[in-house]
Each structure stands twice: as structure tokens, then as C-alpha cells.
């Protein structure tokens, strides 16, 4: 064990306490960020997700592509419309024109890790009050893996 600010060899009690202090500060700051940060992620994101197999068993599905415009133009699922966070206002008009209220709306973006589709689903639920709207878990990647779409076209 060192003296003063000296190096303290192994994982001494002092080092442990200092590490605990740093972790505690980070946890408190993270907790505050959860409540006040405008882009803080929310818990329970998996409740918004549906597996491809579940979606394939649904009676009527309305597909929404939340990827960027250039990706949509390059390839998209047949019948899907584009609705992304960059052009929410403009594309929402088209969405409302074509949205069938009896269908389940499924939103996809690029992959399992892509959060754009979650944001679109949350906005459709909060701003339009649509309840039957979910994220396709795995997004475009899961459609590719299932052979439903191809990289260059749907």
C-alpha cells in the first residue's frame, strides 16, 4: 500500500473504494440522463418488437420502411412505404393516406441494432395513437436471411 498519492500495488481496499466512488458517480449521472436527456433510450424496447415468424402469421400487415431514403430507393419490401425520422413530416402524409386501420403496422430498419424503427413505432403510438404497430426484430437483415428480399431489390 502506498502513501499519500503513491501507487497502491494490488486491488487494495482503498482502490476498491475509489473505483466504487467512480462507478457510483457514473450511475447517478446515467440515472439523471435517463430522465432528462432528449435522446435517452427507454427500457422495454423488446416489447415493441415482433419476430419475422410472428409477423408472417398475421392476417394483414402494412409494412413501413424506416431506413434512409437512399436505402429505400435501392431496395425495399414490396408494398412497403418509406417513413423515416429525417422526413417524418412529409412522409407522414403518404403514410396516413395509405395506412389501413385494420392491418398491423410493422416497421423495419436495417438490422437488429438499428433503433430508427423503434423511434418510428414510438412516434406512431404517441403522436397518432396507433396501437397495433411493432418493430420487425432484425429488420432488413432478417428479411434478407429469410430470402424474402434480395440485397439489390425486393
Amino acid at each position: 500500500m502506498g502513501k499519500g498519492g503513491h501507487y497502491s500495488g494490488g486491488l487494495s481496499m482503498r482502490s476498491f473504494k475509489e473505483a466504487f466512488c467512480l462507478v457510483a458517480i457514473a450511475v447517478v449521472c446515467g440515472g439523471i440522463a435517463y430522465f432528462i436527456h432528449p435522446r435517452a433510450p427507454s427500457f422495454g424496447i423488446d416489447k415493441l418488437e415482433r419476430q419475422l415468424e410472428e409477423v408472417q402469421g398475421m392476417a394483414e400487415v402494412f409494412w413501413v420502411d424506416a431506413r434512409a431514403d437512399e436505402d429505400f430507393e435501392r431496395a425495399h419490401l414490396d408494398g412497403a412505404i418509406s417513413l423515416n425520422i429525417e422526413h417524418w413530416e412529409e412522409q407522414l402524409v403518404d403514410f396516413l393516406d395509405r395506412w389501413p386501420p385494420d392491418a398491423t403496422t410493422i416497421v423495419y430498419c436495417s438490422s437488429l441494432a438499428c433503433m430508427r424503427s423503434h423511434e418510428i413505432v414510438e412516434r406512431l403510438r404517441e403522436e397518432l395513437g396507433i396501437e397495433e404497430v411493432y418493430v420487425l426484430k432484425g429488420g432488413w437483415e432478417s428479411l434478407l436471411e429469410a430470402g424474402i428480399v434480395e440485397e439489390g431489390g425486393s
Binding site: A26, V27, C29, A33, A40
Partner: peptide
């Protein structure tokens, strides 16, 4: 990571890196 663990990590790890 599961989604809940990932959310906690996304909120805490940046502050931990800053503190460290």
C-alpha cells in the same frame, strides 16, 4: 446483452468513461 442491460450500459458507460 439483453435490451435492458444494453440500455443501462448505454446510459452509464459514457459517464464511467468520463469519470475514469
Amino acid at each position: 446483452f439483453g435490451s435492458s442491460v444494453a440500455v443501462v450500459a448505454a446510459l452509464v458507460v459514457p459517464y464511467l468513461e468520463l469519470c475514469v
